[in-house]
């Protein structure tokens, strides 16, 4: 039972980390809270569903959906956020309002095109469960955990071991000086969007697989829970986001499994956030003073 809960918590925590990673990468470099990431998650889940039932391939469902949503991210950055941020003295509320608008629009578009009902997400893994001793593992959990690990490792590698990643971190640190060093900073922003939206799409498909169904309202809970996770992680810090995602996933699963506290599951993230902010206001891995 405990091992089961542990695997479940890992899977959910992974999905949370991946969902919030997009918003983290975007906040890190543009300083805006892109709620529309939850729209990318929703669209990714639906695209994955259509691709899976058209081709029968889980791999294609992930790859094509991530690429398509990543490209969508770049378009949104180029045609919506960049023009807004290019205006002098843009108040930070303006891109946020645009993000909320984009998110609402994406939910309604999905509702109009795909219908308001839920779609069943029965991906066939060939086996229904794997038994190791007394522990029963659901293949979906293993897939989710392994895929998240691979994606996050790729992200870590890009950010820390490549010149592109160095340029990304420098741009996130000081855009103007990065520019002077020769970085085409709009490419660094595009990298945030293609990775961020691609990751969100993968997370959407994972949630579909995990809960066996998707609805046009799929993005609503992540749209605000994502905020709790990125703030908890220290705003714009990728490693902090992974930690925060896992912490929230574990807290939710274990609190609802072993206690009978009367608060709804989706509120737990915010309880954790409030406690955290009282103890360490800069977040798990945030820095006190921005340098």
């Amino acid at each position: 039972m405990f091992t089961q809960q542990l695997m479940n918590a890992l899977a959910i925590g992974s999905v949370y980390a991946l969902t919030a990673m997009g918003a983290t990468l975007i906040y890190g470099i543009l300083g805006i809270l892109d709620i529309a990431n939850a729209g990318a998650y929703l669209i990714g889940a639906y695209l994955g569903w259509y691709i899976y039932y058209a081709t029968g391939s889980i791999v294609l469902a992930f790859v094509l959906s991530m690429v398509a949503v990543g490209v969508l991210g770049i378009l949104i950055q180029k045609f919506i956020y960049s023009p807004i941020l290019a205006k002098p003295n843009t108040l930070s509320i303006i891109p946020l309002v645009a993000a909320v608008g984009l998110f609402t629009m994406s939910s309604d578009l999905v509702r109009l095109i795909c219908g308001p009902y839920s779609l069943s997400y029965n991906f066939d893994f060939g086996v229904t469960s794997i038994r190791i001793g007394s522990v029963v593992l659901v293949p979906a959990w293993i897939l989710i955990f392994a895929l998240t690990a691979v994606l996050l490792l790729i992200l870590w590698f890009i950010l820390n071991k490549t010149k592109l990643g160095l340029a990304w971190r420098a741009t996130a640190n000081d855009t103007e000086i990065a520019k002077v060093c020769g970085v085409n900073t709009s490419n660094a922003m595009a990298l945030s969007y293609i990775l961020g939206y691609g990751f969100a799409a993968a997370a959407g498909i994972m949630v579909g697989i995990l809960y066996n169904s998707i609805t046009p309202a799929l993005g609503e809970v992540p749209s605000y829970k994502m905020l709790a996770i990125i703030v908890l992680g220290g705003l714009g810090n990728p490693l902090g986001t992974v930690l925060a995602g896992l912490i929230i996933g574990f807290t939710e699963v274990f609190l609802s499994a072993y206690t009978s506290i009367p608060i709804p599951k989706d509120a737990i993230a915010f309880v954790v956030l409030i406690i955290m902010l009282l103890v360490k206001p800069e977040g798990l891995l945030g820095q006190k003073n921005k340098v």
């Binding site: 971190r169 420098a170 640190n173 020769g182 340098v291």
Partner: peptide, 29 residues
Amino acid sequence: YKRAGMGIGYVPEGRRVFGKLTVEENLQM
């Protein structure tokens, strides 16, 4: 960003080193 390679080095007001990068990474930038 296209002026960087032209041969002008810039030492900005307030230093503005990349605080979250190491010394070596700053130089690589």
